Amino acid sequence: MHEDERGQLIERLRRYGYVTDRKVLEAMGSVPREEFLPADQRRLAYQDTPLSIGKGQTISAPHMVGMMLDALELRPGMKVLEIGTGSGYHASLMGYLVRPNGRVYTVERIEELGTSARGTLERLGFGDVVEVVIADGTEGLKEHAPYDRILVTAAAPSVPQPLKEQLADGGRLLLPLGTRAMQELVMVTRHGDEYRRQELGGVMFVPLIGKHGYRD
């Protein structure tokens, strides 16, 4: 049943223009979203809506996931940093897209979520491409920098300086910016010491908690 629902969702995302990259559609059609959800939420896996994963966190609506992946233009061999692992679903899709020879480092501040996501990713065969780290994501992950792409899946009051510094020249940093109540999805592109910003539309994400984000 889930496979039929997944196929119908992917077709809607394509038809209505949420996702245009064929490889992103392929990834979303291949990775089982239900496996990243609590048991009582799995029947809702292919409704186009955010869902609770516990600890006050959510898994984003599929159309938002697809739009963000489209904007990042991930390619095989890229090194990616994700801030906010959550369930691990987004990291799995990025892992799919950067294979072969790519790597995704995903940072989660809530140990229970990070541990659960790590187990799910390993069980589904992404352990070789995705590494889960329990830490304050607002400080990035300096030991593996620079990154071709950085994705932040929670809303920050401003662009965390460590993430800007850890972005490769020519790289893209995608994150929601704004208050807890009003946010804009922003793409930051690095050109040497210059950072150019492009606003991609209004969004609503949970707040980014940490030293360079909001305080808990």
Rank of each mutant, 00 (worst) to 15 (best):
H2S: 09
E3M: 05
E3S: 14
D4T: 13
G7R: 15
Q8M: 12
V19R: 08
L25D: 00
L25M: 04
A27N: 12
A27P: 12
M28W: 11
G29Q: 09
V31I: 15
R33F: 04
R33C: 00
E34Y: 09
E34V: 05
F36Q: 01
F36M: 02
F36S: 02
L37E: 00
P38F: 02
P50T: 08
L51E: 01
S52A: 15
A61D: 00
P62W: 07
M67Y: 13
M68P: 02
L69E: 04
A71R: 13
R75G: 00
P76W: 03
M78E: 14
V80C: 04
I83F: 01
G84I: 05
G84A: 04
T85F: 03
S87A: 02
A91K: 04
S92D: 01
Y96Q: 05
Y96W: 15
L97F: 10
L97A: 08
R99S: 14
P100T: 07
P100N: 01
N101R: 14
N101D: 14
V104K: 08
V107Y: 03
E112Q: 14
G114V: 08
T115V: 15
G119V: 00
E122V: 15
R123T: 11
L124I: 11
G127E: 12
V132E: 13
V133C: 09
I134G: 12
I134N: 13
I134F: 10
I134H: 12
D136A: 13
E139T: 15
L141R: 11
Y147Q: 13
D148P: 07
L151Q: 10
L151Y: 11
L151V: 10
V152R: 08
V152T: 07
A155N: 10
A155V: 15
P160V: 11
A168Y: 03
D169F: 05
G170K: 06
G170L: 06
L173K: 00
P176M: 08
L177Y: 10
L177A: 09
M182H: 14
V186S: 01
T189E: 15
R190M: 06
G192M: 09
V206W: 01
P207L: 05
I209K: 09
I209Y: 09
G210P: 06
G210H: 06
G210L: 07
